[in-house]
């Protein structure tokens, strides 16, 4: 499902105009990103939570040259699936992609 289809579906589901949905989507993403950037996690009940995790710095070794490199720490955005939702999707038929 692409973004356009997503917006159409939401507009249909919430009885809102497409423009409004578009605007709301944009602001929601902005707000969420703003919160996430500050380290706040954003959770949707019954679905899951978006959160930022800090990956510690580590040493990596190039297997060819045996050169060791420090990989600096970084922050990544992850989605933690809610338990109820996990169970829900668990037994879905295998997706043919």
């Amino acid at each position: 499902m692409n973004s356009k289809k997503l917006q159409e579906s939401i507009a249909e589901d919430a009885n809102l105009s497409l423009e409004k949905v578009d605007k709301l989507m944009e602001t929601m993403v902005d707000v969420m990103l703003g919160q996430l950037k500050d380290g706040t996690s954003v959770s949707f009940q019954g679905f899951g939570a978006f959160e930022v995790r800090r990956k510690a710095q580590r040493l990596s070794v190039n297997p060819l040259t045996k050169k060791r490199t420090i990989i600096p720490p970084k922050q990544v955005l992850v989605f933690r699936t809610g338990n109820t939702y996990k169970d829900k999707i668990k037994d879905l038929p295998r997706n043919n992609e």
Binding site: L6, D13, L24, F47
Partner: peptide
């Protein structure tokens, strides 16, 4: 909107 957002995500 947010409710339907989650619903549509689920559906999709």
């Amino acid at each position: 909107f947010v409710r339907s957002f989650v619903n549509v995500l689920d559906k999709g």
